[in-house]
Design a protein around this nucleic acid. Structure first.
Lengths: 146, 146
DNA sequence: GTACGACTTCAAGTCAGCTTTAACGCAAGG
DNA sequence: CCTTGCGTTAAAGCTGACTTGAAGTCGTAC
């Protein structure tokens, strides 16, 4: 069982063959086994790619994806690093959910008076993301954009 | 009250001045009022930019941002288009939340046996995102990648 | 009056994430 | 045997979102 060609799996996950070769090149997919030079896959490749696609749509970079899902080394120190990385990502996702809620509220409120909603929510978002104290910098605000 | 320079607001929202000029060029920010050639802003620019930043981090493109937040024309037909667009975006955000939940579960489960969790969740995600019927195409699956 | 620093425009450069192109290999069918 | 069709690689190209560089304009400070 390793009968799928590159265009088979590409079609099944909605990617082009070129993207899959690119992923192999980056180490996101393992080097595929070849039959007379051509890549052959089994269904596990489909599952990996499904995860990759989900993660991409949530804003994960290809580098993050590689480290989080396919980069775990066997040794202990690296697994400690992995744990830290995934904890950080879990926290990010938590925040992302709350930001989506705010955004949904904004869009919903804009069904009424667009300018009002935009200005009010904008003020709120600004305070929560950036405004520390009007005139002084303080260390609490997240450095989201270095 | 229009005393902030471009680098003032850039610093306050964590962007470079060049990004703000770029946004003006794209129509995401209105053409700023100038004093001897130089842009001056008031706090409402900060609020707009806070919204822009939030939206960007949630994966909105600059085009979407322009249309959703700053593109509403005064006439009725355009406002109908706007409503459709925002409804679509609200639905997308809903789906995004559920995908984040799945991803959190995957990462959490990977604290245990990574390969097992990855393969199991991958299978699930694949079925839910792509697998329609094994051998036949059907029209229900989302065309996420045209 | 000229040096400084912060601004201006416009064009070209950068980076991630692919896609396209060119030149080629293999095998199944007529 | 040779065309057709899908596959291969390496290198160059494209898009979105900016950044950088070159060349110039202000206003204040010496």
């Amino acid at each position: 069982m390793a009968q799928l060609t590159i265009s088979d799996i590409a079609r099944q996950v909605g990617l082009r063959p070129s993207a899959i070769r690119y992923y192999e090149q980056l180490g996101i997919l393992p080097r595929a086994h070849r039959i007379s030079g051509q890549r052959r896959y089994d269904t596990s490749a489909l599952h990996r790619l499904a995860v990759v696609q989900r993660a991409r749509r949530l804003g994960f970079t290809l580098d993050e994806i590689r480290h989080l899902f396919f980069g775990f080394r066997k040794n202990v120190s690296a697994s400690e690093r992995w744990r830290k990385l995934s904890q950080r990502k879990l926290a990010e996702l938590e925040i992302q959910v709350s930001h989506i809620k705010t955004m949904q509220e904004l869009l919903t409120r804009m069904q009424g008076c667009q300018c009002d909603a935009l200005d009010q929510c904008g003020r709120g978002i600004f305070r929560s993301d950036f405004a520390a104290g009007e005139s002084q910098a303080n260390g609490k605000t997240a450095k989201t954009n270095p």
